[in-house]
Every structure is written in structure tokens, then in C-alpha cells.
Nucleic acid binder design. Structure first.
Lengths: 155, 155
DNA sequence: TTCAGTGCAAAAACTTTGCAGGAGG
DNA sequence: CCTCCTGCAAAGTTTTTGCACTGAA
């Protein structure tokens, strides 16, 4: 999906919900798509501030929620702390393995799983719209694990 | 697993980590196991208070964390709000489908999935310890969905 | 022109922490 | 007896809200 198409998706959603088309919303959309990995509202706010793009924290929170509602972003809670977001655009469905010792996140794809989920939803008279899957594990290699310890880094 | 065995699991864990065996910890263990479904720290605290079991909020938070570390409970974040817990004891691994409109939660089991997860962890030199899987969907039947609307009930 | 969106600060919601007293090992 | 645990309140974090102003439709 091209950036223009994403913008179009967002505009279509906003119009559909009778939300207004504002410059702030596009600034936040652009900034989100430029984030490398998972990010939270405050990180995005600070990144934008650092780039001299001034929008308020409240607007960032609200806009991320809108983008998650129209499936441009997925919401995650990897460790029960802050809500983190991730762009779905240009990515296959994937899942997260989180080391409970060092917080390292490994992503994996398993296309079959998406089919299973959709089937189960259908069987229950539901229409699947998204997912957030976390598998918790421990690094077996202590060296790899220690390297990431104390970073408190979930990106 | 019998209640006594769960208690034994908890004691073994506490001893192993050089944590103390206290009455409060057992009171919270018992109360957790008596919660019907998913619950958060404050709900458990209030339930216990209502049953004239007086432990502090701080102790509830800390003990739930301990119980989750030793895999008696699983931690979830269904909607990015509060941390919710769920007893693993006496239950098969299962997954949650959450209706984004009415917050209803449907649980499903899919034994194959557990095997896939373990394999992927192993392939990445990780040892799987737990998982929290949320599939977001929409109720297709508006009547069913509306019944649950505005309850703000994640149990 | 109208009313939703924005920015700011204040409040709310959830969780952790500091400290004094009490209890486990 | 030495710590760790507990309870309480206070503080910390993350997110939401109220209000006056601005700008999209």
C-alpha cells in the first residue's frame, strides 16, 4: 500500500464517521508511518516535537486511537504497561515472542494462523478485524539475553 | 490440579526465590482461584474487602505479579486499559476473541496452536512459558452485540 | 456560521513506592 | 535479630477530560 493510499484510507474512514479532515491528523499519520517499530503515544509526541512538528499530546492520543479503529495501526500491550502501536501497512500478519527476562521481541509470521482465526470467528458469527498475539518465553542463551537486560526497550 | 497442589506450587516458587511465606499471599491466592473469570487487581481487592478479608491494595498488586511469575495466573490486556488476570489452573490453553463493539469475550481452544508456538520458540532458541492471544472481531448479529453494549464488562 | 478539533492544564485511572511497624526465617 | 512483608498514603505514570479558542465544512 502506497502512502497516498493509506492517506486515502484514513480520509475515507474520517468522512464515513463524520470526523473532520485536519492537518494535525495527517501530521500524526505521517509521523506514525515513519516510526521504525512499535511505539507509544508519548514517544511519537516527543519525536514530533523534536522534529518541530507541534501537536498536543491529547491530539496524538486521540489520533492514534482513530488510526487503530480504521486498521492502519494495531494496538498492543506487550508487558502490561503502556499501549504500543504498530503499523499494519505493508506488513504480513505477524506475532510477537517476548523474552520475559530481557524484553527482547521476536516477530514471526505464520499464515496458517490467520486462516484459523478467521474460521473460528466465522463459526462464532463474528467478523475478524485484527489481532494482538504475544507469546512469552525465555532466551535459552544467557549471553543473548543479558545483552538486552535493563534496557527497558520494547521497540 | 487440586487446590492443595496449587498452594504447593506457590510455596515452592516462593522458597525458590527466597520470598517469604505469608498469610496474605495465601489469602490472595485463594481469592484469585475463586474469581469466576478474568479480573483485575482492584476488583479482587474490593471482592476480598467485601468478604471481610483485609489486605492492602499494594499487597494485592504485588502478589498477583508473583502468581503470574510462577504461572498460576496469566496476565492479559484486552483493551489496553487495566491489566487483567486469569487462572491457568485446570484450564487448557485458550485464546480470546473480543468484540470491538460490545467487548464480549469468546474463548476458544486450538491445541495445535500451542504446538506451533512451542516449535517457533524452540527454533529461535527460546523456551516458551506463556501466551496472551487476542483476536479482535465484530459481532455479526446486532441483537447479540447490543445486549452487551455499554456494560464495560470484560469478564 | 456552526460545531468538532485542538492545545493546554488539570483530573482521572491505574500502579508503584517510601516509610514505619510487624512478622517470617 | 535481621530482613522482608505489609498497610497506608503519597507519588508516579499513562491517559482522558474540560474549557476556551480555532478552523473545517
Amino acid at each position: 500500500m502506497l502512502p497516498e493510499d493509506i492517506k486515502e484510507t484514513f480520509i475515507t474512514y474520517l468522512k464515513d464517521k463524520a470526523h473532520r479532515i485536519t492537518n494535525e491528523r495527517f501530521l500524526i499519520l505521517d509521523a506514525s508511518l515513519n516510526m521504525d517499530e512499535h511505539f507509544d503515544a508519548d514517544e511519537l509526541y516527543l519525536k514530533m516535537k523534536n522534529d518541530y512538528i507541534n501537536v498536543s499530546r491529547a491530539t496524538v492520543y486521540k489520533t492514534l486511537e482513530l488510526m487503530s479503529e480504521c486498521h492502519i495501526l494495531t494496538k498492543h500491550n506487550f508487558k502490561g504497561d503502556r499501549t504500543r502501536y504498530e503499523t499494519k501497512i505493508g506488513r504480513n500478519p505477524h506475532y510477537h515472542i517476548i523474552c520475559v527476562k530481557c524484553n527482547k521481541i521476536i516477530e514471526y509470521e505464520y499464515p496458517e494462523l490467520e486462516k484459523i482465526q478467521k474460521k473460528i470467528c466465522k463459526d462464532n458469527n463474528l467478523e475478524m478485524v485484527d489481532h494482538s498475539i504475544q507469546v512469552f518465553a525465555k532466551c535459552k542463551d544467557p549471553k543473548n539475553c543479558k545483552n538486552n537486560l535493563n534496557q527497558n526497550n520494547l521497540n
